[in-house]
Each structure stands twice: as C-alpha cells, then as structure tokens.
C-alpha cells in the first residue's frame, strides 16, 4: 500500500507491524515496532526500551488512553475504518495540542480528497488503500491553497496571517 510521509512517496515502510493475538507473545523486531490491537497498552509496556515504539489505533481510542504514552511513542497510526467517521480528525488535533510531535499516520479508508484536511489536522503520514494512484494523491495536497481558518498546521486564521 502506498505510503506518503511529509508529502514524499516512500519506497519502504521502516516499521514492523505487530498484531497482538490473545495467548501469543509478540516477537520484537530490531528497531521499529508498530503494535495494533485493543490490548496495545499491555504490549507497549513490555516493549524493549531500545526499540522505537508505535501504535495503530482506531478513533475509539481517546486522548486520555494515549496521554501516558505520548513521550514513548514515535508513531501513532489512526485507522479510519470508514471515511465517514470523522473522529480521527479531532483526535489528531488533540494529540498535536497535547504536544505529540512524532509521526501521525492516517490509514484505512483514506482517499485523496481527505488528504489535505487530514494534514491540516496534524497528520503527516498517509497509508493509501491499495489501488489508489499515489501521484494523483500527492497533487491533491495542493488543490486548495488558501484557508480561512487556523488548524494544526498553522493556528492563525487568514486574517491574522495578513497582518
């Protein structure tokens, strides 16, 4: 699946995905471990300190769930199970407001028509569904070039920028 980070198409994803399965332990990779599954806090607590840690969550996860981990995490992936579910937009903003500076990835039902909005809400990485044209997606960031309102990218509304 095409991966875009900071508006650059990536050839490889350096993260190793670890799906927790009940009753089985995870085998940790060399460097970057991306954990998914509802029991991610359990595994996050066991993750060797030398590894970079990431979690893949859905919008059912709240800021409060993530707050204790923000300093430890270098990747948070928010998975949009259906594109209509806009909670991830607000969760991203809350995470950035809470000071999280690591990679914030949007995954799941991420169409090109939402990329620019997602980016404005604080996402800097995007996993596109299989079959989507990554070059067309890259162009989509530029379709609307001016914005009235502030957001995570720039908190100033347009009228404060002109001043």
């Amino acid at each position: 699946m095409p991966l875009i980070i900071n508006r650059q198409l990536q050839n490889v994803d350096p993260w190793t995905r670890l799906q927790s399965v009940e009753g089985e332990s995870l085998s940790w990779p060399e460097t970057k471990a991306l954990i998914s599954g509802t029991d991610w806090p359990t595994w996050a607590a066991r993750c060797p300190a030398k590894l970079e840690l990431g979690v893949s969550i859905t919008a059912d996860t709240t800021l409060e769930d993530l707050t204790p981990w923000l300093d430890r995490l270098s990747l948070i992936e928010i998975c949009f199970e259906v594109f209509r579910d806009g909670r991830g937009f607000s969760l991203a903003r809350l995470l950035r407001r809470a000071g999280y500076q690591g990679e914030l990835r949007a995954a799941g039902d991420v169409g090109q028509d939402r990329l620019a909005y997602l980016e404005r809400c604080g996402f800097n990485a995007f996993v596109l569904p299989e079959g989507r044209d990554p070059l067309q997606a890259l162009a989509a960031f530029e379709q609307i070039q001016v914005h009235y309102q502030g957001a995570a990218d720039d908190p100033r509304p347009i009228y404060r920028q002109e001043a």
Binding site: G86, Y117, Q149, P157
Partner: peptide, 12 residues
Amino acid sequence: QWSTLHPEFAYL
C-alpha cells in the same frame, strides 16, 4: 468564513 472547508468538521 470560519466554517468553509473546515478541515476538522467536514465529516461530522
């Protein structure tokens, strides 16, 4: 103006 193409509140 504030609500037009608001990035966070387009999928309420």
